[in-house]
């Protein structure tokens, strides 16, 4: 793979410090305790897959990392910057963290190219030509450069999600968060999106992915985490995780999703 300036290889963390740290993170919705004492460390270049039953808090946890949700207690540090209510820190972190949503959330009134260049132009203050070049580069990376002037409504679900991935990559993030990226796709389109994510992983991007796609976990993850009722129950390398789950809850969950 050519090491061009436009590749997605992130810079190594200064002095080997972890990219993301969650320490004793707690979150409440009203009085409902939705994240319980979550501790997690993600090193640069690591790929973490998070799985668990619905309502376990996995989406909430990764949405806390780019402040789409707020945590009330504990510490979250992204690339050395602590995530607090401080708006400047939030802005800095959001520039370095890319997010891919379950329902794509592309901007329907802009073309694919405009979707990709909007944030670089207005947030990173990149000149338009450079932003468009970057956008076309990433569109080629996700293998749909010919769709640049189309509108999201004209694309299939799989194509839309790949555009969403490209949109996040155009901001050159250090971390990519995926919130159930293939759950809203028709089965025949899941593979094209997972392929893109696997390539991204192989290039060394730090990734946190909430998903039920266990095949992806086996292929790419450095660590698989199982969450239930707001806590991290088990965390292990994928081979160990699937072969020898330690907790009963993990065993139950694995039997449910791997059963069919």
């Amino acid at each position: 793979m050519a090491a061009t300036a436009a590749s997605a290889r992130p810079a190594a963390g200064a002095s080997g410090r972890p990219m993301i740290e969650l320490q004793h993170v707690n979150k409440w919705y009203g009085q409902f305790h939705v994240l319980r004492d979550v501790n997690l460390t993600v090193e640069t270049g690591q790929k973490i897959v998070i799985c668990g039953p619905s309502g376990s808090g996995k989406s909430t946890m990764i949405r806390c990392i780019n402040r789409l949700e707020e945590h009330q207690q504990g510490k979250i540090v992204v690339d050395g910057v602590e995530l607090t209510a401080d708006l400047r820190n939030i802005d800095t972190i959001r520039r370095e963290v890319g997010m891919v949503f379950q329902h794509f959330n592309l901007f329907p009134h802009l073309t694919v190219l405009e979707n990709l260049t909007l944030a670089p132009i207005w947030v990173r203050k990149t000149p338009r030509k450079e932003a468009e070049d970057t956008a076309m580069h990433f569109l080629r990376r996700v293998r749909i450069p010919e769709q640049a002037s189309k509108y999201p409504g004209q694309l299939s679900g799989g194509q839309q999600q790949r555009v969403a991935i490209a949109r996040s990559l155009c901001m050159r993030p250090k971390v990519m968060l995926f919130d159930e990226p293939t759950s809203a796709l028709d089965p025949e389109m899941v593979k094209e999106v997972l392929d893109v994510m696997v390539e991204l992983a192989k290039e060394g991007m730090t990734m946190m992915c909430v998903t039920h796609e266990m095949g992806f976990a086996r292929a790419v993850a450095d660590k698989v985490i199982f969450m239930d009722k707001g806590e991290i129950v088990e965390s292990n390398a994928p081979t160990e995780f699937f072969a020898h789950p330690k907790s009963d809850r993990t065993k139950l969950f694995l039997s449910q999703i791997l059963g069919h």
Partner: peptide
């Protein structure tokens, strides 16, 4: 406008006025 649009705008780092002007109001 679905909440996801606001979230995507926030996740990309757009400010309130940028998001409102470029994403929310046109739609």
């Amino acid at each position: 406008i679905p909440k996801g649009q606001y979230e995507a705008a926030n996740a990309l780092g757009l400010t309130y006025w940028q998001g409102t002007a470029f994403i929310i109001l046109p739609q």
